[in-house]
């Protein structure tokens, strides 16, 4: 045992410069990918359950392909394939200066949609068929029936699973390392390199991710217990 931990170099200036905005970025990435991914995922789940064979096939290929390839591979693919002019088109000079960060947001949205769609599919299938018939019987269209009857229940039934997936997503954002985006982990690494103290910073990174993921999963568990009582 020969590790002398020394955190004295961690002044509030160092933290402010390296660990605050990068943390905000990781949280933003998680939030955007979770919301947009759930919306896109719901759309894909509806395609998968539709009666159109072409839509069904598209949804199945989309989900199966993204779920059989590692996230790192998908991150590399998106960064390679998104044309460099795209970033300035959507966000001007800011976009041009933050290519990896923007690419990560797009990648995670499309990648997580595959996982969220499987959850939403299970959620939609958990709603009794009779409710759809009841919706049609009172004169609702397919879209109304989905929007007003099926999806709200599917979403509520699956909320704990969706949130658990989001905790996993938060941990996975660290993989943007592959394209050098400035996320929280990168912030820890930058400080580690700056003061030649990588061991301290990796341990601190582990502690940071642990505290956030652990407290979030505890909250999810509590929510789950609450929802179970309601039903």
């Amino acid at each position: 045992m020969a590790l002398n931990l020394d955190f004295s170099f961690l002044t509030s200036d160092v933290i402010k410069a390296n660990l605050v905005s990068t943390f905000e970025y990781s949280v933003q990435l998680t939030a955007v990918a979770a919301v947009a991914g759930t919306l896109l995922g719901t759309l894909i789940a509806l395609m998968r359950l539709s009666s159109q064979p072409a839509l069904q096939r598209f949804a199945r290929v989309y989900v199966d392909l993204l779920r059989s390839v590692p996230l790192v591979m998908v991150i590399l693919w998106f960064f390679l394939l998104i044309p460099s002019g795209f970033y300035s088109t959507i966000a001007g000079s800011f976009g041009d200066a933050h290519r990896p960060e923007l690419a990560a947001v797009i990648t995670f949205t499309f990648f997580e949609a595959a996982y969220y769609s499987e959850i939403m599919r299970a959620g939609i299938q958990s709603v009794p068929r009779g409710q759809v018939f009841a919706g049609y019987a009172v004169g609702m269209t397919y879209a109304q029936c989905m929007r007003l009857v099926v999806l709200p229940q599917a979403f509520r039934n699956m909320l704990p699973v969706l949130l658990t997936q989001t905790v996993v997503l938060f941990q996975d954002t660290s993989l943007v390392y592959a394209i050098g985006a400035s996320d929280w982990l990168k912030g820890f690494q930058t400080v580690g390199n700056l003061f030649n103290r990588p061991a301290e910073m990796y341990l601190l990174a582990a502690a940071g991710y642990f505290v956030i993921s652990f407290s979030l999963s505890m909250l999810v568990r509590r929510l789950q217990a609450k929802i179970q009582i309601i039903r």
Partner: peptide, 22 residues
């Protein structure tokens, strides 16, 4: 809880760069 709540990338960095120091 320990192994589930730390990103796998961070865990590998710890195995490669921190534990050999200890």
């Amino acid at each position: 809880e320990l192994f589930r709540n730390v990103p796998v990338l961070v865990q590998l960095f710890i195995w490669a760069f921190v534990l050999p120091e200890i």
